[in-house]
């Protein structure tokens, strides 16, 4: 048998305890919550789909290796080159703020290979494509560093990257700051479809 204890908040708690939502109220609150949950879960997919359909395509040179994630499975870890970035951030090191959110603009070489051009404190005003990143004491942490693949092909894909270190690319679609990796290639072959 439970026993009821009295505290200084008990009179207030008495009043709240008396409020018991009816079935319809509970249903309404739950439906609102469920809509919010579904909406916020689907929203990143909608933005990504929009970027895939109407975003500008960029081809970045990269290399990769093969770790695993307990939730999302096997992936190829890749690192995009940020040594080309011209830092335009106004970092006040005296405040110990060696890290901040930044916006990387994207340029293209005459050969059509994309690279990160400038790091800006705000999104570019001219509407140019950019990627949101985190500046950390001289390094740039990008949101795209993993290419998830079927567990059956991950080890072979890694070997393919080691065998062709200078011929690996990722394709990325970018639209208003939303970036989606649409494919990872060894030469002209999409890594998911390579027959190992």
């Amino acid at each position: 048998m439970t026993t009821e204890k009295r505290f200084f908040f008990s009179p207030w708690a008495d009043k709240v305890s008396e409020w018991k939502p009816g079935k319809m109220t509970l249903l309404l609150l739950f439906l609102i919550l469920a809509a919010l949950q579904i909406g916020l879960s689907v929203y990143p997919s909608i933005r990504s789909e929009a970027a895939i359909r109407s975003g500008q395509e960029y081809k970045f040179k990269t290399e990769a290796y093969d770790p695993a994630d307990p939730f999302r499975g096997r992936y190829l870890q890749f690192r995009l080159d940020t040594t080309t970035v011209k830092n335009r951030l106004e970092i006040d090191e005296s405040r110990g703020a060696g890290r901040q959110i930044c916006y990387l603009t994207i340029g293209k070489t005459p050969e059509g290979i994309a690279y990160f051009d400038e790091a800006l404190p705000k999104p570019p005003a001219d509407g140019a494509d950019y990627i949101k990143a985190r500046y950390q004491y001289g390094n740039y942490d990008l949101p795209m560093e993993q290419y998830f693949v079927d567990e059956a092909i991950a080890p072979a894909a890694e070997r393919a990257f080691f065998d062709h270190p200078n011929d690996c690319y990722i394709l990325m679609r970018v639209q208003r700051g939303t970036a989606v990796v649409t494919g990872m290639y060894v030469g002209d072959l999409l890594i998911d479809q390579v027959d190992f």
Binding site: Q37, S41, P44, S45, S48, F71, R72, G73, Y75, P143, M144, E145, Q146, Y147, F148, A179, V180, V181, M184
Partner: peptide
Amino acid sequence: LLTAMAITGQVYHVIS
């Protein structure tokens, strides 16, 4: 919720 958010990152290869 956790699964949905995690797998979205897997599908689009972008991990926030």
